[in-house]
């Protein structure tokens, strides 16, 4: 393939599809306009929240627990990470196993297909439905009460499909020959998983975890029915509600005092900063790989 040949071909194409090229340009231009509008809207929300949060933040808010109307939000900050951590604990092992199964499974593909379908369905279940389900099964049936476990499980259901998908992709990026080579050297499934898949997919998995965590941190609907709320710190894994930032945002705004609004804005600011921070880190790590 010489450069002169490529040049000729380009010229021919240019003449042939001139009008298509024009349409292309218009479509591209339009999508840039829409993208620009979205960026403007997003950035203004961002600035508004940061501005309202930053101008009302106090140290007391950050170091004392509270009830969304008085006191601080430390219970909600701590509770958010406890819930997310619990969600990760429940969702990461099955995601890794599921991804290993889908990528490396010896089944004839039907089971992998079922797994894929299952995770796709999970992604599209509205979070309020997951919450309601958690309420009926965990909070009531299994008598856990509003709790870390119930909230963590409700978050895990939502985190699982994202995690599994991203982990699956990072597993698929490992050259197939390497997997075969490991087997040819006498590795069994467990060794191949622990010595090839996991170490090599580390970075991809980490960026998936950060993404799933950031998504979970911003969730409210399923937590309302599962974690409930707590004006103080959770005292156990069950039968003790948990505070979380999205609740403060939701409840604080509804409460008719200026201070509760401030709490809501500060909580929203903390959430936005953590989530964008996590996403940025996950993108950075992902790109560096």
């Amino acid at each position: 393939m010489t450069s002169s040949y490529t040049g000729n071909r380009r010229e021919i194409q240019w003449k042939k599809i001139g009008s298509r090229k024009l349409k292309d340009t218009i479509a591209k231009g339009l999508s840039y306009v829409v993208l620009g509008m979205m960026v403007v809207i997003l950035v203004s929300i961002f600035i508004y929240i940061l501005d309202s949060g930053a101008s009302h933040i106090t140290l007391t808010m950050l170091i004392t627990p509270g009830n969304t109307a008085t006191g601080g939000i430390l219970n909600a900050i701590v509770g958010t990470w406890e819930l997310v951590g619990m969600g990760l604990l429940f969702s990461l092992p099955p995601s890794v196993l599921g991804a290993l199964y889908v990528v490396n499974g010896r089944s004839n593909g039907t089971l992998s297909l079922v797994a894929r379908l299952f995770t796709d369905v999970l992604t599209s279940v509205p979070s309020i439905v997951i919450g309601l389900f958690a309420f009926i099964v965990l909070v009531q049936r299994l008598d856990m009460g509003y709790s870390l476990i119930a909230g963590g499980l409700a978050l895990a259901v939502m985190m699982l499909p994202y995690l599994m998908r991203i982990i699956e992709i990072s597993f698929r990026n490992i050259p197939k020959e390497q997997i075969e080579n490991a087997y040819a050297l006498g590795a069994d499934d467990i060794r191949v998983a622990s010595r090839i898949y996991l170490p090599q997919a580390k970075v991809g998995m980490l960026s998936g975890i950060l993404l799933a965590v950031s998504i979970a941190a911003g969730e409210t609907a399923q937590l309302l029915y599962s974690a409930g709320w707590n004006n103080n710190y959770a005292t156990g894994f069950t039968h003790s509600g948990v505070g979380y930032l999205t609740y403060v945002v939701w409840n604080g705004i509804n409460y008719p005092t200026t201070y509760s609004h401030y709490l809501a804005f500060v909580s929203a600011m903390i959430l936005i900063l953590s989530v964008t921070g996590l996403i940025a880190i996950s993108k950075y790590i992902g790109r560096r790989q």
């Binding site: 050259p175 075969e180 080579n181 087997y183 040819a184 050297l185």
Partner: peptide, 15 residues
């Protein structure tokens, strides 16, 4: 597989 080793066409060391 330990008794019958296989060297593949494309060299592919582990990273």
């Amino acid at each position: 597989r330990r008794e019958i080793g296989l060297v593949f066409q494309k060299p592919n060391p582990f990273p």
